[in-house]
C-alpha cells in the first residue's frame, strides 16, 4: 500500500470515528459542553467516563456519520472554541487527578474568517503551552487523520499512538504538492516524502506505538494499562519526561 493510499483511506467515510472509540472504550461517558468564553464547538466531543475502574477525561475530534451529522460536527475541523473546550476539560482533569485520553481525527483546524478572528493560532498555541506541564497523564491516539496543527493541539502528550492505517502530517500532500509544483497531481510522490505513516513516524521515534485497526477492545486494554503505569509516576517525573520527549525531537 502506498503512503498516499493510507492518506485516502484515513479520510474514508466508512471508518470508525471518535464516538465509536469513546463508546467502545469508556463506560458511562458523560459529555460536557462549551469553552466558557464563546460557545460549544461540535467538532470536539469531550467529557468524563470510566475506563474500567478508572475515571478519565476523554476528548475526541468527531467527523460525523452522515451528511447532517457531519455538518453538525463541522466535518471534524475545530474552531478555536473547540480547542478551548478541550483545554478547559484538561485543566479540570488535572484538578481531579484524572488522566486524559484524546482521540485525534481531523483534516486540520478550521480555515475560516471567524476561526481566525477568534484566534485559531492562539488557541492551538495555548493548548501546546498548557499541556506541556499539565499535572496528569495525557495519552493521544490518532485514529484517522492527523492534520497538522489542528491535530497537534491535542497531541502534546506523554504517549502518542497511531492506528496502523492513520496518518499524521505537517501539511496535506495535496497542499504540499500545490505549494511546491503548483499542481496537486504529485500528491502521491509528496506523500512518500512527508513521512506521514504510522510505520515511518514510529521509525523516526515521533510516536510511541502503532495500534491495530478495528480492535477497539484491545485498544481499551492497552490504554488502561499504559495509563495505570503513567499514574504511578510522580508528578515531577511525568512532566520532566514529557518535556524531554519533545525536547529531543529534531536537531
Amino acid at each position: 500500500m502506498k503512503d498516499y493510499d493510507i492518506v485516502l483511506g484515513a479520510r474514508g467515510e466508512d471508518r470508525l470515528t471518535a464516538v465509536d472509540y469513546i463508546n467502545g472504550t469508556i463506560k458511562e461517558f458523560t459529555e460536557f459542553h462549551g469553552d466558557r468564553y464563546f460557545g460549544d464547538d461540535g467538532a470536539v466531543i469531550a467529557g468524563i467516563g470510566m475506563l474500567k475502574d478508572m475515571p478519565v477525561t476523554v476528548i475526541g475530534i468527531e467527523k460525523g456519520k452522515n451528511t447532517e451529522d457531519r455538518i453538525a460536527h463541522n466535518f471534524g475541523s475545530a474552531h478555536p472554541e473547540g480547542y478551548r473546550k478541550a483545554l478547559r476539560l484538561m485543566k479540570q482533569a488535572e484538578k481531579f487527578h484524572r488522566p486524559v485520553i484524546c482521540f485525534v481525527d481531523t483534516a486540520g483546524a478550521f480555515c475560516g474568517v471567524d476561526a481566525e478572528e477568534r484566534g485559531q493560532g492562539r488557541a492551538i498555541a495555548e493548548n501546546l503551552y498548557e499541556m506541556s506541564d499539565l499535572k496528569t497523564p495525557i495519552l493521544s491516539v490518532v485514529i484517522g487523520e492527523g492534520g497538522s496543527g489542528g491535530a497537534l493541539a491535542l497531541s502534546h502528550s506523554d504517549r502518542i499512538w497511531m492506528l496502523e492505517d492513520a496518518y499524521f502530517s505537517v501539511v496535506s500532500p495535496e497542499s504540499c504538492a500545490n505549494i511546491l509544483w503548483k499542481s496537486t497531481e504529485k500528491a502521491d510522490v509528496v506523500a512518500d516524502a512527508l513521512f506521514l505513516t504510522s510505520e515511518k513516524l514510529y521509525k523516526l521515534g515521533l510516536i510511541d506505538k502503532i495500534c491495530k485497526k478495528d480492535d477497539v477492545a484491545g485498544l481499551a486494554e492497552d490504554i488502561y494499562s499504559e495509563l495505570k503505569r503513567l499514574c504511578e509516576e510522580d508528578e515531577d517525573t511525568l512532566i520532566d519526561e514529557r518535556y524531554q520527549k519533545f525536547r529531543n525531537i529534531g536537531y
Partner: peptide, 21 residues
C-alpha cells in the same frame, strides 16, 4: 512549519512552546 522536514518540523511547535512555559 517547514514542510520539507515533515512531522519533525511540526513538533518543533510543541518543543518551543514547552520551553516558553
Amino acid at each position: 512549519a517547514r514542510m520539507q522536514e515533515g512531522m519533525i518540523s511540526l513538533m518543533q511547535m510543541s518543543k518551543v512552546s514547552a520551553a516558553v512555559k
